[in-house]
Design a protein around this nucleic acid. Structure first.
Lengths: 209, 209
DNA sequence: CCAATTACCTAACAGGTGTTAGTTAGGCAA
DNA sequence: TTGCCTAACTAACACCTGTTAGGTAATTGG
């Protein structure tokens, strides 16, 4: 009885696992090992339950990865949107871009297994699951395209760069970081600064001609 | 002994498939579908033989992906090295970098399923297979680091950029192209030029202050 | 012509896969 | 107490996986 009361007072659900617990574990495993190598039995074991029990919370394996992918994209999208809209009015183009780049990278490297899982396994999941995630993806891509177009219209970005292509290159570069970034070797913050430096001004030493 | 060698070198193999045929098919499937989704039976079917027959040419599935990964890295490495060393002496830093970027991208997008398969599945493959590929990978990475260090020492590259980090960012960005590039939408050649433009000079419109 | 080699085939193996059906134990409302 | 709800369980299913053993037809060097 004391147990029951204690449980009620805290916000801990009766079960130590639950739907969210399964999802958290799944996101972590997918990020670490890739889609094909993670079976329902592995997820169940890591979550401390049995494989069949997963079907109380989810209708299929696809439903699990779909949920992971969706949560992941939303996390990055929200992080980036908020970082940009939190800037004071009149912020310069360079600072805006630095904020957006920083937010995207932070979402991947610091914040959540969901975001990184999305990036890493998207190319490996069944087409139907990819398709289900496309709406959310396109919304995030549109956010970037809007931002970049606005900056280009203001004259801050070079006019000869195609926005769609620039966005693909930029986000692709940031996402690729997941394949090699090691937090022991440097902070996500410093890395984000380097990315911004390179993309904004390039790596060539400027000639004074 | 010499006879056997001569036969192997001169004559077209009797079979329409053979070890190389299996390898070609495997590289294509791995590139298209990822490591986990490609079974030996799928490879065999696409090659026009039966699953068991693969074991005449290879000792295990791991041996197949190891061969694919190895061929892939070598193809990119050779392409990049030759493109750079084919430049006339006295070629400027910018032209050298453009040549290297172009060669890397061409190897991924135009030349060979092996290169693109390497990039796409490396992160999904069993650790032992990754480890076996590391020597070849490191050799290619060293080639880039040498190139970039030389250019930096010559004063062509900014001095505040860490070479290792720059190489990871640059190759990562180029490799990410595989996830979205559509040859119907533009040539690899034009894309390579855009990558060079962005990385060398950045995307900010230069202010004339 | 013979023997060996090459490149395939068939059939089976043990184990892993996603998924389903039926069961159980505890908490809660009436 | 009764009966429902929640969140798990066990056991099995049909299928797929990498892999092995043994067999076969065609080609070739001696």
């Amino acid at each position: 009885m004391a147990n029951t009361t204690a449980r009620k007072l805290n916000e801990i659900p009766r079960s130590a696992v639950g739907r969210d617990g399964v999802l958290d574990v799944a996101a972590r495993l997918f990020r670490e090992q890739g889609y094909g190598s993670v079976s329902l039995r592995k997820i169940a074991e890591a979550a401390g339950i049995k494989a069949g029990s997963i079907y109380y919370h989810f209708g299929s394996k696809d439903e699990i990865i779909a949920a992971v992918l969706d949560t992941g994209i939303r996390a990055v999208h929200e992080g980036m949107s908020q970082a940009v809209s939190a800037l004071p009015e009149g912020t310069g183009a360079e600072a805006i871009l630095r904020a957006a780049i920083g937010a995207h990278l932070r979402a991947l490297l610091d914040v959540s297994d969901y975001s990184s899982a999305n990036v890493r396994i998207f190319g490996q999941v069944p087409q139907s699951v990819r398709d289900a995630n496309l709406h959310a993806r396109r919304a995030y891509e549109a956010e970037w395209d809007n931002l970049l177009s606005r900056l280009q219209a203001d004259g801050a970005l070079k006019r000869d760069v195609d926005i769609r292509r620039l966005r693909l290159m930029l986000i692709g570069a940031l996402n690729a970081t997941l394949e090699w970034f090691d937090p022991h070797r440097g902070s996500a913050e410093a890395l984000s600064r380097t990315y911004a430096d390179v993309f904004l001004n390039g790596i060539l030493e400027r000639q004074e001609t």
